[in-house]
Amino acid sequence: MNSDRVRSAADGDADAMQVVMIGLGDEKFALDAGTVREIIDPIPATKVAGAKAFVPGVINVRGNVIPFADLRIRFGMPVLSHTADSRIVVIEVRIDNEPVLVGVSADRVYEVTEISRTDVQQTPRVGMHWRPEYIRFITKWRDEFVVVPNMERILN
C-alpha cells in the first residue's frame, strides 16, 4: 500500500490528486482521473457465458468491444437497475502489463475534483465489507469518507 502511495504522489502534485468521484450504492469512490478515458450513458451489455461474475459482459465503445465490470458485484453490494443517474466510466487499467480498457458501472458520477493525501486515513481492518487489498486508501472529501479503489487488484 505504501509503495502505491509513493508512486502516485510522484506523478502528481505533491499532495493533491485529480479524481472522478462516483457513487455506488451508498458509498463514494474516487477513481484516479488519469485513468478515466470517458464517461458514457449506460448501454446494454452483451452477456458472456462462463465469465467471472464481476465482468459479466462486453460493451461496444466506439467500435471497440471492451469488458464491462460491475464493482457492486465485486464489493458484494446489491445490484440495482439503471436509474437516470447511471453511467459507465471507461477506465484504462494494466492487466498483465498490458493496458486494457474496462467499462465500470457507476450509480452516479458526481464530479472531477481534487482530493488531498494529507487527509488519508488508515484503512481500518474491521468494519469493512470489502477486502482491504482492493483499497488503495481512504480519504476525506467534504467531510465524507471516500474510498480510492485499487482497480488493478480488483480486476485481476
Partner: peptide, 27 residues
C-alpha cells in the same frame, strides 16, 4: 473479429466478439 480482453481469458467457448448493425456486441 475483435478479440476479447484478458478479463475474459477464462472463457474458451468464444473466440472473440463483433459489433452488430445496431451497435451492440455479439460473441
Amino acid at each position: 473479429i475483435k478479440s476479447l480482453s484478458k478479463l475474459h481469458s477464462n472463457v474458451t467457448i468464444f473466440s472473440g466478439a463483433t459489433i452488430l448493425g445496431d451497435g451492440t456486441a455479439a460473441l
